[in-house]
């Protein structure tokens, strides 16, 4: 099989931030492994809960240095929901470091990053060309499309994007669907958030919520709610390549992330058919695959991955 397109237009692969609470050693091992994979960009940092401090900003900066030394791009990701003074202070400190590109996930980060190159994550609501143009004026270099938007809006935004601004798609992983003041992991363990005992650490891939007729539906990860199904855009690889999408994001899971990266990379290089790749991915998705958002359908449905 021939490569999908010329090398210069082929999307690069990124690895999103680790969204779960894993032990420090596991995180360090995970990144050591990821540096050996064909992933091009690593997003690094705590994006869910400020109480999780098993890795400090200094630790992520160190991993970022190693990432760059390995010939890859490092982006520092920031918290998605900023409520307290302490969170704001940490965010400010992270944004004051200019060694690496920073991904803004709350409007507060835009305030600190204005005038410098930055990325917006999927939780910054960039839904139209005017928002895109506005943020480009502030320094936007890449945006991750909000995950509920599909091919129709992506196509139109790509057609009108300002020069030098890249588009990244959340291409593989459990979908980030919502954020709350409440910690749902603690809530379901009958604990308060202030006494959470870091119980989210007991669920390295989140706590699955099943409907009363037995379908795995959601995945609770602290204050974040994810989909149980794993969103998969691999079947749309030729399409997104032709559209000019620049980066495809893979969201880390505790198992098989390196395998997933390899499948995407092999499909991008033309060594593997996306249909064969999707069959492999299905085996590693704990609650099955979905892609409905991309085709304009309910997010949980699988059209292309069916």
């Amino acid at each position: 099989m021939a490569p999908l397109t010329t090398t210069s237009h082929r999307p690069r692969l990124s690895l999103g931030p680790v969204t779960y609470l894993w032990p420090r050693e596991q995180v360090l091992d995970f990144y050591a492994e990821m540096l050996e994979t064909p992933v091009d960009i690593l997003y690094l940092g705590e994006t869910i809960c400020s109480k999780r401090r098993q890795l400090r900003p200094e630790d992520y900066w160190e991993i970022a240095e190693r990432t760059v030394a390995a010939g890859k791009e490092a982006v520092i990701s920031t918290l998605a929901l900023i409520e307290s003074d302490g969170e704001l202070k940490t965010l400010k400190r992270i944004c004051a470091d200019e060694r690496f590109m920073i991904e803004a996930n709350d409007l507060a980060a835009l305030d600190f990053l204005e005038g410098r190159p930055f990325v917006t994550g999927h939780s910054i609501n960039l839904y139209n060309h005017r928002t895109l143009a506005f943020l480009a004026k502030q320094g936007l270099k890449r945006w991750v499309l909000p995950v509920e938007l599909g091919r129709e809006t992506a196509t139109k935004l790509l057609a009108s994007r300002p020069q030098g601004v890249e588009c990244e798609l959340f291409a593989y992983g459990r979908l980030p669907l919502a954020y709350s003041a409440r910690c749902f992991t603690a809530y379901n363990r009958n604990l308060g958030k202030d006494d959470c005992q870091f119980c989210c650490g007991d669920y390295p891939d989140g706590l699955v919520v099943t409907t009363q007729d037995g379908n795995e539906f959601l995945d609770l990860n602290g204050i974040q709610t994810q989909s149980a199904n794993t969103h998969n855009l691999l079947p749309a690889l030729a399409e997104v390549t032709a559209m000019g999408v620049d980066v495809l994001r893979i969201s880390p899971q505790s198992q098989h992330t390196a395998d997933v990266v390899k499948v995407f990379a092999d499909c991008l290089s033309g060594d593997l058919e996306p249909s064969v790749g999707t069959a492999k991915l299905r085996e590693w998705a704990p609650s099955g695959l979905c892609d409905g958002y991309w085709t304009g359908d309910s997010g949980y449905k699988a059209r292309m991955s069916a």
Partner: peptide, 17 residues
Amino acid sequence: VMVEGRCLLSSYASGQS
């Protein structure tokens, strides 16, 4: 229950949020 403007639960089930 969720931060308004950043909740996609409705579209995840129904396609519309």
